[in-house]
């Protein structure tokens, strides 16, 4: 079952002006239900456009966007409801915080949904727990927190709407390795806990390899490759031909294979590589 689908979708920015630019060009993409799917590609490959098409912030120039099997633009007046079921966390989401307290900021989305106080409270607490924001911080101003904490508050604000699909655009941008691992592992945990679907946009192949079930590679306004991390990284040469990097251990295995060693090349983590190399050593 697919959680969302784009069928024959094109999107053109500033149509009919000199600044006209095709962002995605007749694409067909399906996002499988209950998985963490990563979208990777260069700036301008169309990956951010896809995320905004999915939650109805952008209306396709042509084609159909389906969420849960329904065309989201069937009733344009109800597009706000689509934004509640497809939550979108923008890049650097901490810049959207505005409330006096962290609690109120997380509650902004649920409040807009028209939920009652009790339901809102329950959701705020749940979301805060998932991202690891303790109750002591609820009454603090979000502006007094550290960068990483601010980011987590902002992500909780979207999670509190309990979207069926959660999309995150570069959730780890600008964070140090520890902050990055913290956020990404909590997102994966959120998916498991809520049995929802997560779509994550990233520049980092290494992050994708660790946290995603499936990877969609975009290049030149079109999907270029789709599969499990092993399948995608197994085609390292093609990835490099569109200017994307593959994990360092994958490159090393490829080089060993080229030299005639009988090694697997669909390896992308240190643990996998270790098992493979030690197998080779024992054989020798």
């Amino acid at each position: 079952m697919n959680a969302a689908e784009l069928r024959g979708v094109s999107y053109v920015y500033s149509e009919h002006t000199p600044f006209c630019k095709v962002a995605v060009d007749h694409i067909d993409i399906s996002f499988e239900e209950k998985l963490v799917t990563g979208i990777i590609g260069h700036t301008g490959s169309g990956k951010s456009t896809v995320s905004q098409l999915l939650n109805g912030l952008l209306k396709p120039t042509s084609g159909v966007v389906e969420v849960d099997g329904k065309d989201i633009w069937a009733e344009p007046k109800k597009i706000r409801n689509v934004r509640f079921s497809v939550g979108l966390v923008f890049q650097y989401p901490e810049y959207q915080l505005f409330e006096e307290t962290c609690y109120k900021d997380i509650a902004f989305g649920p409040k807009n949904m028209g939920l009652d106080e009790k339901e809102i409270d329950e959701r705020v607490r749940e979301a805060a727990e998932i991202v690891g924001i303790p109750e002591e911080l609820f009454e603090k101003s979000p502006f007094d927190l550290s960068g990483g904490q601010k980011r987590r508050i902002a992500i909780a604000g979207i999670m509190a709407m309990r979207p069926k699909i959660l999309i995150l655009d570069e959730p780890a941008a600008g964070l140090d390795p520890r902050g990055r691992d913290e956020i990404l592992s909590r997102v994966v945990e959120y998916r498991k806990k809520t049995d929802s679907t997560v779509i994550m946009i990233s520049h980092s192949m290494e992050d994708m390899a660790v946290y995603c079930d499936k990877i969609l590679v975009m290049s030149d306004s079109k999907p270029y490759m789709y599969g499990t991390p092993a399948e995608v990284f197994g085609r390292a040469a093609e990835l490099e031909s569109v200017g994307l990097t593959v994990p360092q251990v994958t490159k090393m295995m490829l080089l060993l294979a080229e030299q005639g060693f009988d090694v697997r090349t669909d390896v992308y983590t240190v643990a996998q590589a270790k098992a493979e190399i030690e197998r080779l050593i024992r054989q020798a």
Partner: peptide, 20 residues
Amino acid sequence: VGLDVPQVTELLLEIREDGF
């Protein structure tokens, strides 16, 4: 201290610790 190391450095070190 929450920093990354190159995958290859880590890999070789781990294999080394296994006695190779």
